[in-house]
């Protein structure tokens, strides 16, 4: 039996798990943007903070994902539902590329342009919203892109703690020693990663300042 037969036969479950997967990745990336973007902006403005913040995000990144899921399991409210836990862990992993790229993107804006804006009488927030963020946008988006692709991959591991997603097939396939079942999870996950990569890349190109 080939993989595609299997997927067609179980298409309802494939779709359901894909939707779960998307939900885990989508919510966590959104949260990571909501936290990481302001944090990146703050550390671009207050140089004193950039080392500790980036170092912390870096350390989180080095924790093996299974271990992180395990660590979080006993936390009261979180541990009650596996998807909460998975979303938190994925958010933490997605933070680093977003914070770092926001920081380097803003720092990379030509200082002459920023000074010109300041000299013209732009307020700090006008400078940020009209000059720095738009000019840093493509760098920030490539951070989001990396975060998304990482999340799509990592989210498969969330199935280990029962959070659902395409990892279910992969773990089931591993248990059954059945390549087709593994592939039924891996192929859609790979496709999601490619689509996410391509999609953000497209947006990035559209928003290119020049």
């Amino acid at each position: 039996m080939n993989v595609f037969h299997f997927m067609l036969h179980n298409h309802e479950q494939v779709l359901e798990l894909t939707a779960e997967h998307l939900w885990l990745v989508g919510i966590s990336t959104l949260l990571a943007i909501l936290i990481g973007l302001p944090l990146g902006i703050v550390i671009a403005r207050i140089p004193r903070l950039n080392k500790p913040v980036l170092a912390s995000a870096n350390i989180i990144q080095t924790i093996p994902s299974l271990a992180l899921f395990g660590f979080l399991l006993p936390v009261p409210w979180l541990g009650q539902r596996a998807d909460r836990l998975a979303i938190l862990a994925l958010t933490l992993y997605a933070l680093l590329p977003i914070i770092r790229n926001t920081f380097t993107g803003i720092r990379g804006v030509d200082p002459a342009v920023v000074e010109a804006g300041r000299g013209m009488g732009l307020t700090d927030s006008q400078l940020l919203l009209q000059v720095q963020l738009p000019l840093a946008m493509s760098v920030i988006l490539s951070g989001v892109r990396v975060a998304l692709v990482i999340s799509v991959g990592l989210a498969t591991i969330a199935a280990a703690i029962g959070a659902g997603g395409l990892g279910e097939f992969i773990f089931r396939g591993l248990a059954m020693v059945d390549d087709q079942v593994i592939l039924a999870g891996a192929i859609p996950a790979a496709l999601l990663a490619l689509i996410a990569d391509f999609g953000v890349g497209w947006v990035e190109k559209r928003l290119q300042p020049r």
Binding site: D110, A112, G117, R118
Partner: peptide, 19 residues
């Protein structure tokens, strides 16, 4: 802010907003 808006400021060409 008022002060700066009331003073014109010209620098070498790099000061234009590229976007």
């Amino acid at each position: 802010i008022e002060l700066r808006r009331s003073i014109g400021w010209v620098i070498q060409e790099v000061g234009l907003f590229p976007h």
